[in-house]
Design a protein around this nucleic acid. Sequence first.
DNA 1: CGCGAGATTGATCGCCCTCAAGGTAAGTGG
DNA 2: CCACTTACCTTGAGGGCGATCAATCTCGCG
Lengths: 231, 231
Amino acid sequence: MEAITDNVPSLLRETSLFSAWPEALLDSLLKHSKTVHLGSGDILFVEKATANAFYLVLSGRIHLIAAAATGQEKIVEIIQENDLFAEAVAFLGGCYPVTAAAEGSTTVLEIPLALFLEILEQRPQLMRQMLARLSMRLHFLVKELRQLSVESAEQRLVSYLLDLCPVLDAAAVVELPAKKSAVAARLGLTPETFSRLLARLREAGLITVNRRVLDIPDPRALQCWAAGHSS
Amino acid sequence: MEAITDNVPSLLRETSLFSAWPEALLDSLLKHSKTVHLGSGDILFVEKATANAFYLVLSGRIHLIAAAATGQEKIVEIIQENDLFAEAVAFLGGCYPVTAAAEGSTTVLEIPLALFLEILEQRPQLMRQMLARLSMRLHFLVKELRQLSVESAEQRLVSYLLDLCPVLDAAAVVELPAKKSAVAARLGLTPETFSRLLARLREAGLITVNRRVLDIPDPRALQCWAAGHSS
DNA sequence: CGCGAGATTGATCGCCCTCAAGGTAAGTGG
DNA sequence: CCACTTACCTTGAGGGCGATCAATCTCGCG
């Protein structure tokens, strides 16, 4: 546990938001932060709860979940290690728009919003960075919105796989960031449909599947194939 | 035309973003802005084009459209008179994530991003307001995302109608903000499905429809009915 | 009146969900 | 080492929602 805690300053510095922060500010922020350990499925915060802090994933993964009255759930985003989340709520003093749950054993750093805002208030450049961050998230969400509304399940899956590829011009071996049922939820699909789609791509010779690891010999071909299937 | 131009300062001041700006700053921003007139269907900017300005709708309506490779289109948002749009792209120096098209004859004020950023850079409080604005948009998009992925067409329609009601506790007469086919696209539906859903609600005695004007005698009943239909 | 855009209604189809039944690993205790 | 368990994934059959195609209707307008 100490090992992780000692690591925190360097981890924080690796995030795009904090990379340019002066040492002193980071330290004072860390003094008022604390690590939280979560078991599999544990809830970090629930939708509509008052937001007092935002978080950095130190190890494990966090699912951001939007639930409907019917009990159906959609995973809005899967937060990986060393990623910040929920930092955007800070500026409304409001509540969390989603529920955050741990996948597997997970450790997060809890950073109080009040102090963060206080520091930000006095550092225009930092504000500028926050604006850029939020702007990026906006673009991400707009893209998601488009994909959900106008693309088929297969096109969404292909887009998702292509996003995992570091480059499109060379063969790639990618690992799914979570168990398949969770990735399915992330894509707005049932596990059954997800499985069937993977099978289709496999039968078409576009990918090979090994547990959580996918081999994509020709990303471009995958891209074209999905486009051709819209007709 | 002069009449509209003369009106601009007061219109700008009515927007949440500019309401607290000093007169002098608004004036200098206005000096470098210009009004643009659009006919029905005219394109203001296209997706992926480099962003040099953001806009305020002076009269008419603007559709923000996300298109897929297949030619299908989804209206992400319908911008009303006196609303700002595309202000969020400023902080990435990037490109527009959607296409903007006029619905009917429309006039917009084009505000250059560069100058806006310059002013913002020197006014931390203004930055803070921008952050709050972006945060609100993030919440809006997350809500949209949830609705698209986990709610049925009927639930989405009802949510949309309820959003148009000023209060839920009293009867409301609301006007659709655009022609029905455009509202359908906004909800991710075809005009046919939209029409059928309205008919269903009408037959259930929950609304009456007159051209673009809807009468909702009991919003609460509408809300409950949609919830009950999830089973 | 005749025209045309938008709205409605009907018939049919396909995608994806649901429900249900195996299948395939990993871990457990004998 | 091997049944047994458990979690996860896969595969199959069937159904429903919403899209598509097509015909009719309404209304504003020249």
